[in-house]
Amino acid sequence: MTEKEATAQGEAPEPTQPPPSGRKNAYNTTVDGGGGLVRVGAPPSPLTVLGRAAGTIWSVPKARVGLILLAVFVLAAVFAPLLAPYAPTDNSFARAEGGSPAHPLGTTTAGEDVLSQLIYGSRVSVLVGMVAGFGATLIAVLLGMSWGYTRGFAADVINFFVNLFLVIPGLPLMIVLAAYLQGGGLAMIIFVVVITGWAWGARVLRSQTQSLRSRDFITAAQFSGESSFRIVFREILPNMTSLITGSFFGAATAAILAESGLSFLGLGDTAMVSWGSMLFWAQNSNAILTGQWVLLFAPGLCIALLATSLTLINFGVDGLSNPRLREGKGR
């Protein structure tokens, strides 16, 4: 329901209009808490908007689980050298061993410690997720917003290209690109993932931009003498925080899964320890035949848990922009 309809129906049990998507408490504290000491012409900065969004996400139980899970992986990635018992490429141990006090998850067929590899592997996934997610979101924001704000032929052309990128199967394209660019390592993988991963976000942000630009406050900003640049970045952008956050987590999830897939096919740097390359070596050294199920199980579980944590966070983000999806019993 748009705000306009809510007004016409007029059944909000409060004298003033309820705030959009329940950010009321956050607003009240920032504004009323400031009393008379308000900076001249200060809108809520993007940072306070983000902080507020984070607070609302935290209030959704599923999202809270996701944030905690994500924090665990990020901490593991950052402190890997402290947490891991051995260097990930140290292959001086007995080969293909089962679990033991010295090697809780056993060793690989090349004689490396599985637990250490697992901890170090989080670095690649977290890095790829964050960097590629950020890159894809950046393209999505820039393209989606300018596409939503322009009209006419240019918009039609962009529309065609975004739709093309949406329907072209991403992973095959990544595989082809990676095959040509072999030897490019992690940077190549991130590049390939970004190139193929921005279209969905661009589409979502485009339609939101379009719906916002038809609102009167955008026309009003034009009448206040604002430049197009300022209208896009000061009037429209701050109203899309939740959608942008959502597309970031969506793109990061896709990036993590894509990286693991490419590494599993051996298209990344096979010497680099990542969860995908662990599975590549496990498959190539026939871990299935030797019965080393931990080698198969653990890296994939980590990928799945990391991706799940991002999806769970997005449950909270969804509730920000769509009150109907908030937790609760329907009927």
């Binding site: 908007v49 026309t219 109203n239």
Partner: peptide, 20 residues
Amino acid sequence: FQDPYSALNPLHSVEYTLMR
């Protein structure tokens, strides 16, 4: 404008809106 609910950016203070 007709609709005062859509004519003001929900994220901007009254002061910011008038300042522009």
